[in-house]
Each structure stands twice: as structure tokens, then as C-alpha cells.
């Protein structure tokens, strides 16, 4: 479903990604861990075209991203893959001028061309599934952080993506709310969605991940099932990360 080869990305003289190679199979839940500044968030942003790549190639949900594309072509491909790939941010980024319901209905109606009535029904269904049926009319600033993140996940799911990217979805939340979100991710994985989750939560990685990828200084230094990578790490950097976690 996702194939990344020798991906490089620099900001000026600072190389953030130094050749990332990684694969995610259909229906797999991949967890990406690594110290702050190891390049894991940049990697995730490259996956759906929010960052332009400098070298290597990304193949995701049938679209290929390579460097040096003409701006229009790049825009076209990014837009095409975003129809298939949803993303959830650490800071939620809900639209503050719309109600929770309107946030979820927005893209299906204006991007996918779903009829407002159907989009609304789908959105209410998602809200109910996430325990937010009573909050449909609330504005984002009237919701708690955990509620906002649940709405953000619902907003992404409303576009019925085949791949979901999560960029530290629990880092802005207290442990209890974080637990709620992780349970939702777990449930989504059971539905067969392909997911890439960047997180600091080792517990989640251990329990839910199909594969764990460890980022260190812009490279993947170790990949494998959690019981391997998290129990018997090969690399010193991984051990250090686990001790801190």
C-alpha cells in the first residue's frame, strides 16, 4: 500500500531525512517511533504531499511522488493521493468557524460531491460511534481536547480513505484522553484500514502495531514486529529510546 525508497528531505543545509526506505502492507498498522527531531513527523508530511521531497520516491495508494515534478503535476498528484489518504494532526486543526458536524460534512460535500443529506447522515453516524452525538452543534472551542481530536478523526474518516496518517495524535492530550484516542485507533485497525501512526506511546506500539519502525537521525534504523523491536532491540539508539519511554 505504501512503498518509500531512499526518501531525502532537507531544510536549507539541515538534512532531516537522509534516505528513508520503508513499506506498509494493505491493512497494516505501522507505528513510527523516534526521538524528537529524528524526522518522523516530516516523513509523515511527505507521505501526503504537505512537504516536497528532495530525493527518492514515494508510492502510496496508487500515486507516485518523485522530486522535480512541474508544480501543476505535483499539485495534481498530491490532490489525487489525498482523496485516498486521510491525516490527523497533533493540534487537531478543526475549522473554528464551523460546528463539529459542519467540520465533518465540509469535505464530503465540497470535495467528494456527496449530497448534503447523505454527508450529514454519515457524519452523525461517525459522531455517535465516537460518543459525540450530543456535541454535533458545538463549536471546536466548546469541546475538550479529546473531543476535538475525535471530531478530527471523524472528519478524516468521512472522506472514506484507504490510508490514515496520524501525527502524534495524543501528544496534546492528558493520559486519560490519550487512552480514549488510542482505543479508537485500535478499533480502526480492526476494520482493516491501512494506518501509519507517529507516536511516543510505547504501550500503544507494543499492543496494537503490526510493525514498528524506529527513526534515528533521518533514517529507519530498525523495523519489525513489536515483540521483536521493542523487546529485543538490535540498535543502541532504540534501547535508549525505550529506556526513556
Amino acid at each position: 500500500m505504501i512503498r518509500v525508497q531512499e526518501l531525502t528531505k532537507s531544510y536549507g543545509a539541515h538534512a532531516v531525512l537522509r534516505g528513508v526506505t520503508l513499506e506498509v502492507a494493505r491493512g497494516e498498522l505501522a507505528v513510527v517511533i523516534g526521538a524528537s527531531g529524528s524526522g518522523k513527523s516530516t516523513f509523515l508530511r511527505c507521505l501526503n504531499g504537505l512537504e516536497r521531497l528532495d530525493g527518492g520516491a514515494i508510492e502510496i495508494a496508487g500515486t507516485t511522488l518523485v522530486p522535480g515534478l512541474a508544480p501543476e503535476e505535483e499539485e495534481r498528484r498530491a490532490n489525487a493521493l489525498r482523496q485516498e489518504v486521510g491525516m490527523v494532526f497533533q493540534q487537531f486543526h478543526l475549522f473554528p468557524h464551523m460546528s463539529a458536524l459542519a467540520n465533518i460534512v465540509e469535505a464530503p460535500v465540497h470535495v467528494a460531491g456527496v449530497s448534503p443529506a447523505e454527508a450529514r447522515e454519515r457524519a452523525l453516524h461517525l459522531l455517535e460511534r465516537f460518543g459525540l452525538a450530543a456535541k454535533a452543534r458545538s463549536r471546536p472551542d466548546q469541546l475538550s481536547g479529546g473531543e476535538q481530536q475525535r471530531v478530527a478523526i471523524a472528519r478524516a474518516l468521512a472522506m472514506q480513505p484507504t490510508v490514515m496518517l496520524f501525527d502524534e495524535p495524543t501528544s496534546a492530550l492528558d493520559p486519560r484522553r490519550a487512552g480514549e484516542i488510542l482505543r479508537i485507533l485500535d478499533a480502526l485497525a480492526d476494520d482493516g484500514l491501512t494506518m501509519v501512526v507517529v507516536t511516543h506511546s510505547m504501550g500503544f506500539a507494543r499492543k496494537a502495531a503490526d510493525r514498528v519502525h524506529v527513526f534515528h537521525e533521518g533514517r529507519v534504523i530498525e523495523s519489525g514486529p513489536p515483540e521483536e523491536v521493542l523487546v529485543n532491540p538490535r540498535e543502541a539508539a532504540t534501547r535508549e529510546l525505550l529506556e526513556l519511554g
Partner: peptide, 17 residues
């Protein structure tokens, strides 16, 4: 905030939309 534009883009919106 820049995040607003990004959140809209990742939902598949064009820049114009």
C-alpha cells in the same frame, strides 16, 4: 494559522477551495 490551510488540503481541497 498555517495548520488551517494544511487541514483543508489533506481533506482533498484545492488551494482555491
Amino acid at each position: 494559522p498555517v495548520g488551517q490551510m494544511e487541514a483543508a488540503l489533506v481533506l482533498g481541497m484545492s488551494r482555491r477551495l
